[in-house]
Computed example of a mutant assay.
Amino acid sequence: MTSVLFDVPGPKARTRHRAMAVVGTLGLLALIAFVLYRFYDSGQFTAKKWEWLQYEAIQIGLLEGYLATLQAFAVAAVGALLFGAVFATARLSDHKFFSAPATAIVEFFRAVPLLIMMFLLYFGFPTIGVKMTPFVVVVISLILYNGSVLAEVFRAGILSLPRGQSEAAYALGMRKTQVMVLVLLPQALRAMLPTIISQLVVLLKDTALGFIITYEELLYYAKNLGGSLEFSRPFVPVTIVVAVMYIATCLLLTWLATYLEKRNRRSSKVAHIDTKKAEETVLVGDSTI
């Protein structure tokens, strides 16, 4: 049996793949165990290295840094989604006046590394009289980069929809802008939801780059705390705590994506069943007449 891109594995191949998966899992667990042992052997799990967690001021500082991270993420996520929707629509325009500049902007900001963009806005723009706070620089940089990526995601989602969707809308007398905004874009959002959430997870992690331009987010506070001589420079314990906070937030976003995807599939099934029942009712009525 074959698929479009590869041969479907047989019994021996499946057994071999399971064995390789088991070996890989055991290898990964062994590596994690070795790293944990080295941390333990070097005294990273001693009470003195973790006593900083007992101080209320440090707990509040971590919380404030985490909230600053979430604030930048929330504003940048909304801006990136709007940016992506607008520029995806512009790229699909039949008028070169809109599509050509939109294409140039999207390709440019996708090509520029995020950190260079932050450096340019924070250190370069003041030389021409434009000075922005670290928060504004982080948000604008995240919007421009991730919004450009999302613009391509939206464009791919719109192009993947059946042509009958737009043709039916045009047959009803709708203009192209209305077709794009009211018919195609909402469907593309639902279809590309997992990819969109994945890019938002990337956006969340990219907020950590803000510490380089002194934005006081979670990693910025953790860097200063990890270098504290008062607590014997607890770099490893602080890194573990911050990593757990980032991982928990990313897992929450992943869970949200899974939940929305399941709910969307459930709504589609209900709508399909309702449509089928309506058709059957019409057929029964016609046969009775």
Rank of each mutant, 00 (worst) to 15 (best):
V4D: 03
P9A: 01
G10C: 08
P11G: 10
P11Q: 12
T15A: 15
M20V: 04
A21E: 11
T25L: 10
L28G: 07
Y40L: 07
Y40T: 11
D41I: 03
G43Q: 05
F45G: 07
A47Y: 12
K48E: 15
E51D: 13
W52T: 06
L53N: 02
E56W: 15
A57R: 08
Q59K: 03
Q59S: 01
G61Q: 07
L62Q: 08
Q71Y: 13
A76Y: 08
A77P: 08
L81F: 02
F83H: 03
F87M: 02
A90T: 10
A90H: 09
S93R: 06
A100E: 11
A102M: 07
A102H: 09
I105Y: 15
F109E: 09
F109L: 04
R110L: 05
A111E: 07
P113N: 07
P113T: 00
L120R: 01
F123L: 09
P126G: 05
V130C: 02
T133A: 10
V136K: 09
V136A: 14
V138T: 07
I140Q: 07
I143K: 00
N146T: 09
N146A: 00
V149T: 06
L150V: 04
L150E: 02
E152W: 00
E152I: 00
V153A: 02
A169D: 06
Y170G: 10
K176D: 14
T177H: 12
Q178K: 12
Q178Y: 11
V179P: 04
L182D: 14
L189N: 05
S198H: 07
Q199T: 05
V202I: 13
L203V: 01
D206Y: 13
T207G: 06
Y215L: 02
E216V: 14
L218H: 02
L219P: 01
L219T: 15
Y220R: 05
K223I: 14
N224A: 12
L225G: 11
G227C: 08
S232H: 08
S232T: 14
T239Y: 15
A248H: 08
W255V: 05
T258S: 12
R263K: 13
K269Q: 15
A271T: 03
H272Q: 13
K277N: 11
D286L: 13
D286M: 13
I289V: 14
